[in-house]
Simulated assay, not measured.
Amino acid sequence: MGPDPQLKWVVSLMVLTQLVACYLVKDLPWKWVFFWAYAFGGCLNHSMTLAIHDISHNVAFGNKEAKWNRLFGMFANLPIGVPYATSFKKYHVDHHRYLAGDGLDVDVPTAFEGRFFHSPPRKILWLFLQPVFYILRPLYVNPKPFTSLEVINFAVQLAYDLLIYSLWGPKPVFYMIAGSMLAMGIHPISGHFIAEHYMYLKGFDTFSYYGPLNWLTFNVGYHMEHHDFPSIPGSKLPLVKKIAAEYYDHLPYHTSWVCVLWDFVFCDSLGPFARVKRKYKVAKAE
């Protein structure tokens, strides 16, 4: 499947929208900056992380233009406020190659997370801290050398944040970063983190969701389809389901990401430990 010709234009419009929003919040009271960071900026930034997810699969410019995909990922990263796109690509490859691999797939929570965050209040705290664990877990589970592209990503992001600060002060910078952190924690959209790979039904560790929040998340809800065909753009995944309806229509799926979060917190059988963990034999480089 070739690249998505619309993705680069949609992402560029989202970056421009967040730039305008940074200007609009610069003189607001802090309470309203916080509110709009959660209610609007967070939604857009979370959507942008899923655009970066698509870009990491080279669907913006195609597999033959890997460099342009990486650079465009850095551009999409700008409104998020924290350098993320290049490191995500580095680890997301392993998520697909070694799904739920012990010590390989950093999407799987650590033993500490499973043991400590087991009660409803602690699971709520874990959801709030989810962005922190997504940043720190790779450094513990599967540390990899820092690359030159990550240095560029860091430098570009820092320069953009400093530019926004110099133009409009601290509130727009707070708006960007707080929105990103809040929307990846307790937020309706963040339900996809739990819905995708937690065992809500024994024997199944990947689930899809076909509801309206896919419109904001580049169809990341079509997650079974995505793992079957990771090179197909998110915009084409509904077509995959339609073509192979005789297969996908018989698989379990989620109907609500909000209900997923509720069940995760209050169901005793669910928690950070409710993940499959697999052993893979990985050949060592000589």
Rank of each mutant, 00 (worst) to 15 (best):
P233R: 05
P272Q: 02
H57I: 07
M1N: 12
V265I: 07
H197A: 04
G103C: 00
A111S: 08
S231N: 14
L158G: 11
A85Q: 03
L201K: 15
L16S: 08
W68Q: 12
I194V: 13
P188D: 03
Y98E: 01
F273H: 15
P172C: 00
I52D: 05
H57T: 05
W9F: 09
Q6V: 15
A85E: 00
L182R: 01
H227W: 06
A274L: 03
D94W: 07
K123G: 10
K123R: 02
G101W: 06
A195R: 05
S87C: 15
L28Q: 07
H227I: 03
F193Q: 11
A21Q: 07
H254C: 08
G81Q: 01
M224Q: 15
L125N: 03
S180R: 05
W215Y: 15
W30I: 11
K90Y: 02
V260G: 06
G191F: 06
P170E: 00
L201T: 15
L261W: 13
A195T: 06
L7Y: 08
E225V: 01
M181W: 08
Y222M: 09
A66T: 11
I152M: 11
Q130M: 12
K284F: 12
P121S: 02
K26S: 04
L261P: 10
P5D: 12
H53W: 05
K64T: 13
H250N: 15
R278A: 10
L50C: 14
I52K: 08
G73N: 03
P212V: 15
E65A: 14
P120Y: 04
L19M: 09
V260S: 04
F264I: 01
M48A: 05
G103M: 00
D105P: 00
L127Q: 04
I135S: 13
L71K: 11
L71Y: 06
Y134C: 12
L129G: 05
F266E: 00
E150A: 06
L129P: 04
K284S: 14
A66D: 15
H192I: 14
W126F: 09
T217I: 12
A76G: 08
Y140I: 15
D263R: 13
P131T: 00
L71Q: 12
L239M: 15
W126R: 04
C259I: 15
G211W: 03
L182F: 07
P233E: 02
F174C: 03
A60P: 04
L237K: 02
I152F: 09
F40Y: 09
W36A: 07
S235F: 14
Y280A: 07
V151E: 12
D161H: 11
F146E: 04
I177C: 02
K90F: 00
A39F: 08
R70V: 11
F133V: 02
T255I: 10
W68F: 14
A195I: 08
